[in-house]
Write a protein that binds this DNA or RNA. Structure first.
Length: 283
DNA sequence: TCCCAGGGACCCA
DNA sequence: TGGGTCCATGGG
C-alpha cells in the first residue's frame, strides 16, 4: 500500500475525476476505485487529503491524475463565467486525467452516438476478449487490447462485441496505429490545430472524438469537445453567442471564451450537465 | 413502443 | 462548405 498527502492548496477529488465520464475502465467497490491503466490494475482510495493505492508507483499516480498541475491557476482563468463557476463549485477537485493515448483513441471511437454505461460495457467486452490477462488480488482483469490485437481481430469479430457500425472504424484505425508506432510522439509534439488534423485522418474520428483524445490523452487543454450535452447547454444558455449553432462555431466560442483551458471548462460543464437548466427560457 | 445517447461517414446541392 | 440521412445498440 502506497500513500501520499495531497497539497491543501491543490484541490483533488478522486470521485469527481473518475465518475465524470472521461474514463471508462474504473469502477468503485467498497470505497475503493479499481481501474486498468496500461498493463496495471490499480486500486485507489481517497480519504480527505490522503490518497492510498496499490498497483502503481507514485510517479504513475501523479502523472495519471495530473496531481502536479496547478488546478487553481486554471480555475482562475475559466471561472469568470458564472455557469462554469457553479460547475466548479459542484464538481470541486475534478482533474482531467492523462489517459494512455491508444486506449483513449479507441475508446472514443467506441463512444460515438451512445451513452456512457453502454460504452463501458462495450469496452469491457472486447478487452476481456482481446486484452492481456492481469491477475490482481485474486481476480483476473484485462489490459486494454493493443492496436495489433484489434487489427488482427477484424471487423466481424469486433461486431460480436456489440460494436455495431463502429467495428470497421476501430479495425481500420487499429491497423493504421499498429503500423505507425511513432504516432503518439508525433501528435504529442504538434500544436493543437495540427494534432487535430492528424487525428481527423483516422476512420471513426471526427471533430468531437479528436478533441476528446487531445484533451484526455495529450493534455491539449484548448480542445473543446462538442457533444449533444455541450451543444444543448451552450445553445440554451448562451443563445446567439455560438454563431449559427454549428458544432464548429460552438467549439470556437468555447475556445474564445475560456482560452487555453477551454477543455477544463467543457469538462466541468459536462460533469455538471444534469444540474444545468437547458430550457430556452431558463437563462 | 418510443426516445435518446461523450457522432461520423457518405451523399448531394 | 453545408445540410440531410443512415448507421447498431441498449437503457430508461
Amino acid at each position: 500500500m502506497d500513500t501520499l498527502t495531497l497539497r491543501p492548496d491543490q484541490p483533488f477529488s478522486l470521485d469527481h475525476t473518475l465518475s465524470c465520464g472521461q474514463v471508462f475502465r474504473w469502477e468503485k467497490d467498497g470505497g475503493w476505485w479499481y481501474g486498468i491503466v496500461d498493463q496495471n490494475v490499480i486500486r485507489v482510495r481517497q480519504r480527505g487529503r490522503k490518497l492510498s493505492w496499490q498497483g502503481a508507483d507514485e510517479a504513475q499516480i501523479r502523472h495519471y491524475f495530473q496531481l502536479d498541475l496547478d488546478l487553481p491557476a486554471i480555475l482562475t482563468v475559466i471561472a469568470h463565467d458564472p455557469l462554469v463557476r457553479d460547475a466548479v463549485a459542484r464538481c470541486n477537485g475534478l482533474r482531467i486525467v492523462a489517459q494512455p493515448p491508444w486506449e483513449c483513441l479507441a475508446s472514443y471511437i467506441c463512444a460515438t452516438y451512445t451513452n456512457i454505461p453502454v460504452i463501458k460495457k462495450r469496452i469491457a467486452l472486447f478487452s476481456a476478449r482481446y486484452g492481456e490477462e492481469i491477475p490482481f488480488r485474486g481476480k483476473t482483469y484485462h489490459a486494454f487490447p493493443t492496436p495489433e490485437a484489434l487489427a488482427e481481430a477484424g471487423e466481424c469479430d469486433l461486431r460480436e462485441c456489440r460494436m455495431g457500425y463502429r467495428a470497421p472504424y476501430l479495425c481500420d484505425t487499429a491497423g493504421i496505429i499498429a503500423g505507425d508506432p511513432g504516432w503518439e510522439q508525433r501528435v504529442s509534439l504538434l500544436p493543437y490545430p495540427d494534432a487535430r488534423k492528424e487525428l481527423l485522418r483516422l476512420k471513426g474520428v471526427g471533430k468531437k472524438v479528436a478533441d476528446c483524445v487531445l484533451l484526455f490523452a495529450f493534455q491539449k487543454y484548448e480542445a473543446f469537445p462538442v457533444d449533444v450535452w455541450i451543444r444543448k447547454i451552450l445553445t440554451a444558455r448562451y443563445p446567439g453567442a455560438a454563431g449559427s449553432g454549428r458544432d464548429e462555431d460552438i467549439a470556437a466560442f468555447g475556445r474564445q471564451t475560456f482560452g487555453p483551458y477551454a477543455g477544463y471548462a467543457q469538462e466541468y460543464l459536462f460533469c455538471n450537465r444534469e444540474n444545468i437548466g437547458i430550457e430556452e427560457d431558463n437563462g
